[in-house]
Simulated assay, not measured.
Amino acid sequence: MNASLNEDDLSLLAALREARPGFVSGEDLADRLGVSRVSIKSRLDKLKAEGFAIEAVRKQGYSLTAEPEALHPLLLELELRALGAGVDWILLDECASTNDEAMRRLTDGAPCPLVVMSRKQSAGRGRLGRRWHSDDAGNLMLSFGVRPDKPPAFMQRFTVWVGLRLAARLSEFSSVAVKAKWPNDLLINGRKLAGILTEARLDADRMRELILGLGLNINSAVDTWPVEVRSIATSLASASGRAFSMSQVTALVLAELVNAYTDYQNGAIDTEMECLWGEFSAINQQPVTITTYDGEIEGEVVGIDTTSALQLRLANGEIKTFAAGDVSLSGNY
């Protein structure tokens, strides 16, 4: 959890949420927290100032009628506990890059897994040096940091694995078809919903720290984005026609990252990986163009190998494997 959170504040909010849509008396709240009624009133006023709608009715008590859509630390922690996800997390108002901040903290000895989130990034980045548009309050910017003590090949397969796991989880949660585009994007109807950037610090042939950065568009209003972004990107809210609780979606994503990493570390994932690829890949069995340092190559995607390298069938029938590259759907094959 976030060490700065107050357990009494968490207990108060939990009691209000448990009582919904009913009321909980001030006396019961005071007894639960072991504080005075005056203290309860002060804490409730603080929650109201932070965007919680709380109705007070004489002789009935208090009822929580609405929660802020924006990411809120107390809500995030309660959602994480409901999911059984234990992870240390930090929420910053602004930073240059959550990947850089997570790497700095892990290098300095912070416990892991560690999640660093920021409401705004001034130097967010994606693969190949691309800038990630990251100054919208409806976007989630986070970095998940671990110390895997694995060879560098671990990084690529983990990136693909996480993308497929998140596509499945977000599809289930939002009822919108989210697809993973190898190696590191999430799409809805061909438009970019999220990007993943995985980086590592190496010691000889082992990774000391591994940072997986994620930029996810949740409640962003597409029509407010820069013109060059609007035609190629989307958000969960724009695709589904409804807004989401940022805290709930963030907790879901953090829990999935923790579970995906644990599953990846603890056992064979080949069977599940194959199933997820078949259902949630945006490019499987599709004609694509892959751009590598050697130029552009067209082919039909036939799958991924055991390292998660992409396999293409070329026009001459040859199967060629690519460990890296930039992929786009192609109608010319």
Score class of each variant (00 low, 15 high):
residue 231 S to N: 13
residue 144 F to K: 01
residue 50 E to G: 11
residue 21 P to D: 12
residue 309 A to M: 11
residue 192 K to S: 09
residue 54 I to S: 07
residue 86 G to F: 10
residue 328 S to K: 11
residue 142 L to Y: 04
residue 232 I to G: 11
residue 209 E to C: 15
residue 88 D to Q: 11
residue 131 R to L: 15
residue 318 E to N: 03
residue 185 D to F: 01
residue 25 S to E: 05
residue 105 R to H: 07
residue 22 G to A: 09
residue 160 V to Q: 04
residue 213 G to E: 04
residue 332 N to P: 13
residue 203 D to N: 14
residue 72 H to F: 10
residue 186 L to C: 03
residue 206 R to G: 03
residue 125 R to V: 00
residue 144 F to T: 00
residue 315 A to D: 08
residue 130 R to V: 08
residue 305 D to F: 05
residue 48 K to S: 08
residue 166 L to G: 03
residue 81 R to L: 05
residue 146 V to R: 06
residue 103 M to L: 13
residue 122 S to M: 08
residue 212 L to P: 02
residue 151 P to E: 10
residue 241 G to L: 04
residue 122 S to A: 08
residue 8 D to R: 11
residue 268 A to C: 13
residue 276 L to V: 02
residue 144 F to S: 00
residue 76 L to K: 02
residue 263 D to L: 15
residue 267 G to A: 06
residue 8 D to S: 13
residue 77 E to C: 00
residue 197 L to Q: 03
residue 278 G to I: 05
residue 311 Q to P: 00
residue 32 R to K: 09
residue 171 S to V: 04
residue 52 F to V: 03
residue 49 A to P: 15
residue 321 T to M: 12
residue 275 C to E: 14
residue 69 E to N: 12
residue 222 V to F: 10
residue 175 S to Y: 15
residue 146 V to H: 10
residue 98 T to D: 08
residue 325 G to K: 08
residue 98 T to M: 07
residue 34 G to F: 07
residue 257 L to G: 02
residue 114 L to K: 02
residue 261 Y to T: 01
residue 223 D to G: 05
residue 67 E to N: 00
residue 174 S to V: 12
residue 179 K to R: 09
residue 88 D to H: 14
residue 154 F to T: 00
residue 187 L to A: 06
residue 312 L to T: 01
residue 21 P to V: 07
residue 128 L to E: 15
residue 234 T to K: 05
residue 142 L to N: 07
residue 292 T to N: 08
residue 259 N to I: 06
residue 144 F to I: 01
residue 321 T to C: 11
residue 283 I to Y: 03
residue 70 A to E: 07
residue 142 L to I: 02
residue 187 L to Y: 09
residue 258 V to C: 04
residue 98 T to N: 07
residue 85 A to C: 14
residue 159 T to Q: 02
residue 240 S to A: 14
residue 84 G to E: 05
residue 169 R to P: 00
residue 238 S to Y: 14
residue 243 A to P: 14
residue 332 N to V: 10
residue 190 G to K: 07
residue 12 L to T: 00
residue 107 T to S: 14
residue 177 A to Y: 13
residue 331 G to N: 15
residue 273 M to L: 12
residue 258 V to L: 02
residue 154 F to G: 00
residue 258 V to H: 05
residue 218 I to F: 09
residue 58 R to E: 13
residue 9 D to Q: 06
residue 307 T to G: 01
residue 74 L to I: 06
residue 60 Q to T: 07
residue 105 R to C: 06
residue 212 L to D: 03
residue 210 L to T: 02
residue 190 G to V: 09
residue 288 V to S: 05
residue 297 I to K: 13
residue 254 L to A: 06
residue 59 K to S: 12
residue 65 T to M: 10
residue 44 L to G: 00
residue 93 D to S: 13
